[in-house]
């Protein structure tokens, strides 16, 4: 049975049940947070760092959460920001242009240590990596997580129209990329 967000938030308000509420929250969202991060950064260790950082931030800021949006939406917003932050940090640390970080991630997929899917899965992931970071986030959320445009709009603070356009372009680019690879 899935734990209700309201129950978690109510328990978190009280000192004596705060730890329990937080454990419930981790159990409920850890996989979704991790997988969103993993699809963005490919590497397990990076996805692990992002996930832990997200929950540490949740612990310190859950009291300030105003419940204007759903708890899941709020956690996803922290996760997507953290993913973008880590990717930016990677570029800054190694003074790399955008394409080189993605090149490094592509290398990880091709090496096969991080991913053991079939060839079509790898080709799709490689095509996704060629998208700009925010478009990649939109594609991953829509294609894999099946998040609605309305929810995504709250998470990414972008209009529904812009998200639809972004997804449309992402699919077209992926199709072109896969056609080049003679997969379609």
């Amino acid at each position: 049975m899935e734990i209700d967000d309201k129950d978690i938030l109510e328990k978190f308000k009280h000192e004596e049940s705060r730890q329990l509420a937080f454990n419930m929250l981790i159990r409920k969202y850890q996989k979704r947070v991790y997988w969103l991060a993993r699809k963005m950064v490919i590497d397990h260790d990076d996805a692990n760092d992002i996930s832990q950082e997200v929950f540490v931030k949740v612990w310190f800021h859950l009291e300030d959460f105003r419940q204007d949006s759903g708890l899941f939406t709020w956690i996803y917003r922290i996760t997507s920001n953290e993913c973008l932050r880590i990717l930016k940090k990677k570029r800054q640390r190694f003074f790399l242009p955008l394409g080189d970080v993605e090149g490094e991630l592509s290398g990880k997929i091709q090496a096969g240590h991080q991913m053991n899917g079939d060839e079509i899965q790898k080709k799709l992931q490689l095509a996704i990596l060629k998208l700009p970071e925010k478009q990649r986030l939109v594609f991953n959320m829509k294609y894999f997580e099946e998040i609605t445009y309305e929810e995504m709009s709250v998470i990414l603070e972008t209009s529904v129209g812009a998200l639809k356009a972004s997804y449309h372009h992402a699919v077209q680019k992926i199709q072109t990329e896969l056609k080049l690879e003679e997969f379609i």
Partner: peptide, 28 residues
């Protein structure tokens, strides 16, 4: 057609990424 576009057998990508055994507890 674009919003329903799908490459067959690619939606469940989680199964393709390797995750160490007992990882979820490790994360906690």
């Amino acid at each position: 057609a674009i919003s329903n576009w799908e490459l067959p057998g690619t939606r469940k990508v989680e199964a393709c990424f390797t995750v160490p055994e007992g990882y979820w507890l490790q994360m906690e």
